[in-house]
Design a protein around this nucleic acid. Sequence first.
DNA 1: GCAATTTTTGCACTCCGTGCAACGAAGCGT
DNA 2: ACGCTTCGTTGCACGGAGTGCAAAAATTGC
Lengths: 223, 223
Amino acid sequence: MLKANHHAEPLGRREQNKIDTRHAIADAAFELARSVGPGAFTVDQIVERAGVSRRTFFNYFPSAEDALTVRMDLFIDLALGVFEQLPANEPLFGAIIRAFTETTRMEGLSQHGELFRMAGADPDLLRAQLHSWERAEARIGEALRARLGTAASELYLTALVGCVMSSTRAALRDWAVHTPPSASDSGKQLEARILAALTMLRDGFADPGALIAPDPPDIPARS
Amino acid sequence: MLKANHHAEPLGRREQNKIDTRHAIADAAFELARSVGPGAFTVDQIVERAGVSRRTFFNYFPSAEDALTVRMDLFIDLALGVFEQLPANEPLFGAIIRAFTETTRMEGLSQHGELFRMAGADPDLLRAQLHSWERAEARIGEALRARLGTAASELYLTALVGCVMSSTRAALRDWAVHTPPSASDSGKQLEARILAALTMLRDGFADPGALIAPDPPDIPARS
DNA sequence: GCAATTTTTGCACTCCGTGCAACGAAGCGT
DNA sequence: ACGCTTCGTTGCACGGAGTGCAAAAATTGC
């Protein structure tokens, strides 16, 4: 269910077992959340499915909800990998947007959307996700620092990253409200919204009326 | 410690008692967090200080950390009150920035900064605060909707609000890192950073090198 | 195969969060 | 002031969350 790592480094049994356990727990939690709803299951149910002891669960995650944020962490892993490969002379916002679209091409967004919707029904899951976004922000900030060098101020950098993440989240909200879970082009709808939001940000929120076009807007180069 | 409400509406005993209890709990929690550190105290300690029963605490807050977000909620109350009074023809970003500065003139920022710092040491408090920001975002979004009318798309509006909040948070982070808790002009430092961040946002992150000037930057009009 | 290291597990314990029912205080009509 | 109603508070009890600790099991290096 969860993606394995792609760098074929020689992993020892120890490392590999830990990764497997982690994913087993995450998968069990996700399936449970799907079937009975977020916040409607206990840690004991998770560990039964995952085949580990209760105590082991808490060696990996501080709470049941945290097991549901593994997917986002992995998504960020991938996206950062893509981002670092992009040519350094590419415009900043363009690189960010491309890193995102390339990653969605690998991973898809449906499960992320699903989890986002769940968070609307369970405050604890929402908090875990917000925390996850926060961690992602920090990691992306480092990647941007590596690209921009010391010319960009700390404030500029963190504000920029924060806005990118905020815009993405706004797109998720809009998508969750306006696209029914059953929609066939659900993923495309979401991607289009994220692109629209990032484009607005890049252009300084100049056009309040910017709406979602039926097909993904093309992005005229800038910044 | 916490501000009383300013509209002198005729409140009944019931309403007033609830407000008092709420504030008593919030104050007790804050004092405790200050003295022993965030996450280092129990609900029982809070209720002992506040003079209410354990059960009553949970009638007001779902967790100990949530009692520490009351201040931010009240700050947003004030800020929204200010924002609604501003002339409707004032440029959007200008109005947002003014609503913020006016509110800080009433309330100050030191306690907010203090709480923000605490969140760095306690994941649960961090999550509660992130949730609080989320609620604030929703409320501010409504206020902006009332001002902008139906011309602005839902996505534009939520993305904009999200970016405003993100930029503010970035300013808080920068402040927490670079300004020692003992600094005498701590509040001014923070305010200057928030203004700088909001200005960058307004200008579309055009200048990566934007740094904090020793004295608060003045804001040339736009948008 | 053996010793060292790391991970898993069971156990015990405190604290959290909530449903429930009894109690007490505020509102309200007379 | 009286009773009646409504709403908030409290105590109790219970299941679940999260953690320190030490024993057991698995992996590693020799």
